[in-house]
Write a protein that binds this DNA or RNA. Structure first.
Lengths: 216, 216
DNA sequence: CTTTTCTATTGACATTTGTCAAGAAGTTTT
DNA sequence: AAAACTTCTTGACAAATGTCAATAGAAAAG
C-alpha cells in the first residue's frame, strides 16, 4: 500500500508554493466545510499532492466524447457544462459547474469506459484535477476525504433524483420555475438556450414561458 | 463509540436463527458480491444485528408522504414502488425495487425531513430494514459495508443520471425502448400504467407507442 | 360463482411543445 | 469599424403527447 502510494507521487514533487496557493486553500476550506472539522497539516499535504491545478479558456474541452474521463475537476473559478450531442446534432446539457462544484463523467471515470459526454468551458476556468487512482488512495488514507465523498455522493444523488422527478412530473413552465428557485444564479450566468437544453425544452419554448410568466 | 454501539443493540438480542436465516444469507451473498471478498463471521454478525426483517402484503405502505423515512429496505422477495402524488392526484413513480434492490427516500432518511414520497408494496414483500444510525455505525465499523455503500451510491448515481439524460433528451418511444433494453423484467412484472408513470408519459401514450412498435 | 375493481385499448379532440424561418440586438473577432 | 458570430424573440405551422370518454377483458375480492 505504501509502495503504491509512493509510486503515485514519487515523480511529482510538490513545490511549496502549491500547498500555500489560494487554490489549495479554497479546497481546504471546502473540505473542512463538508466534514465540519479542521484538516491536519499532514492530511492536507497528502490532499495537495493528489490534485493538479489546471486553467482552461472559453470553449476549450476538459473532456470530449469518446475519451475516457481521466480527471474529476473541482472548480475554483469560472463555469463549465457537461453535455451530449444526439444524432441530429442537438446538444443536451446534463450538468453545469461553477465555483466549488465538481464536474466529470462519473461512469467513465469509474469504469474507464469511453464517455458519451463533452465537458467544455463557458467562462475561463481554474480547476483542481484528480485521477480516480489518486482519489481512491485519498479515500483510504484520509478519513475526512472518505466522509466528504460520501456526503457529496449523497447530495448529488438527491439533487439528481429531484431533477429526474421534475422532468418526469412537471411541465416546462414548472421546471423553469423550479430552476429559478433552486439556482437563481444560473439564470444570470448562462445563456437562455443553454438553460433550455438543461431543462430539456427548446429555446423557443423557454422564451415563450418566460414571456408568459412576466405578464402573470 | 463502543458505548453508543452497545446502546443500539443491547435491547435487541439476536436469536441464533436469524444469523443463519436464508434472509441474512442472501444479504451476505449480496455484500460479498459487491466487495468481491468474503465477509468475516464477526463482521457478518455485526451486520445481522443491524438489520430487522419485515414482511408486507400488497398495497401496504413502507413509507407515507409526510412521514420521515426511518428505514432503508433491502428487498429479499417481492416488489415495491416509490412515488409522489401531485396536486391533481396523479401518481409519479420514481423508483421500482425488486429482489436485491434497495428502496427508501434518501433525502428524508439522511436529513430526517418529512418525505414527499410514498412507498408501497406491489407484490408481497420480504425485506431487511436498517436505520440511518445503524447504517452509519456499520459504515464506520465494517469496511466492507463502507465499500459497498460507496459502490452502490456510484451505480445509483450513474443510473439516475442516465434516466435523467433519457427523460430530457429522448422521446416517449425512445425511452420505452431503453427501458425495454435495460430492465426487460419490468415489462413483464409491472402493469403498463405504472411503467408509463415511471417513464413520465400517460398510459394512453404508452399503449400507442407499444402498438406502433409491434407493427414496425 | 358473481360482483367489483383493475387494466389496456381506441377514438376524438385539446394542449403543449417542437421546428423552421426571419429579423433584431448584442458580442466577439479581425 | 466592419464582419462574423451569438443570442433572443416572434409567427406560422407541425408533431407529440395529454385528456376525456367509452368499452372490453382480466384479475381480485367477496
Amino acid at each position: 500500500m505504501l509502495y503504491l502510494y509512493s509510486k503515485l507521487v514519487a515523480y511529482a514533487p510538490l513545490p511549496n508554493t502549491m500547498i500555500n496557493s489560494p487554490a489549495m486553500q479554497a479546497l481546504r476550506t471546502y473540505i473542512e466545510h463538508y466534514t465540519s472539522s479542521p484538516l491536519s497539516d499532514a492530511d492536507f499535504e497528502l490532499i495537495s499532492r493528489a490534485f493538479t491545478p489546471k486553467k482552461l479558456r472559453r470553449k476549450q474541452y476538459l473532456l470530449q466524447e469518446g475519451e475516457v474521463c481521466k480527471y474529476f475537476a473541482f472548480v475554483l473559478k469560472g463555469a463549465l457544462r457537461q453535455y451530449s450531442v444526439d444524432d441530429k446534432g442537438v446538444e443536451h446539457i446534463v450538468h453545469f459547474a461553477v465555483e466549488n462544484w465538481w464536474i466529470g463523467d462519473r461512469e467513465s471515470f469509474v469504469m474507464l469506459t469511453p464517455s458519451r459526454y463533452n465537458i467544455d468551458v463557458l467562462e475561463e476556468a481554474e480547476m483542481l484535477l484528480i485521477t480516480n487512482a489518486q482519489l481512491q488512495e485519498l479515500i483510504s488514507t484520509v478519513p475526512a476525504i472518505a466522509q466528504m465523498v460520501r456526503e457529496l455522493d449523497q447530495r448529488n444523488f438527491i439533487a439528481t433524483q429531484k431533477r429526474l422527478h421534475a422532468s418526469i412530473g412537471y411541465t416546462a413552465e414548472e421546471r423553469y420555475a423550479e430552476l429559478k428557485q433552486v439556482h437563481p444564479e444560473f439564470l444570470q450566468r448562462f445563456p437562455q438556450h443553454m438553460l433550455a437544453s438543461y431543462l430539456g425544452i427548446s429555446p423557443e419554448t423557454l422564451s415563450r414561458v418566460r414571456h408568459k410568466s412576466l405578464r402573470q
